[in-house]
């Protein structure tokens, strides 16, 4: 059992719905404050928020692969066929 139970499942759901907007800074000040307050008192929601933040950060940092030379050449040839030479 968790000790203090001033945490209400309804707040968890409200927060859960808005997490992405929170992470993206798309919420107003009051809503952000509410979310932060809840997260400070609810480990489950705090954990959910941190893992979602991390998920987003990972996506933003995944590196691109270089385009294969061979394909780049092929693409050039295809376009040369279509684009008339001036």
């Amino acid at each position: 059992m968790t000790g203090d139970d001033h945490h209400d499942h309804k707040h968890c759901l409200e927060m859960f719905e808005k997490l992405s907007e929170y992470i993206d800074g798309e919420l107003d000040h009051a809503t952000c404050a509410k979310i932060e307050e809840h997260a400070n008192n609810c480990v489950a929601c705090f954990s959910c928020m941190e893992t979602l933040k991390r998920t987003v950060a990972l996506c933003k940092n995944v590196k691109d692969q270089p385009i294969p030379q061979e394909f780049s050449k092929k693409l050039q040839e295809i376009i040369r066929k279509v684009v008339p030479i001036s």
Binding site: L13, F16, V43, A44, F46, S47, E50, T51, K53, R54
Partner: peptide, 18 residues
């Protein structure tokens, strides 16, 4: 995707997020 039941709720933030 709703957070898990009470019973399964994490009591800490996993290492991969930290």
């Amino acid at each position: 995707f709703l957070p898990n039941d009470e019973a399964e709720k994490p009591d800490h933030v996993p290492q991969w997020a930290l």
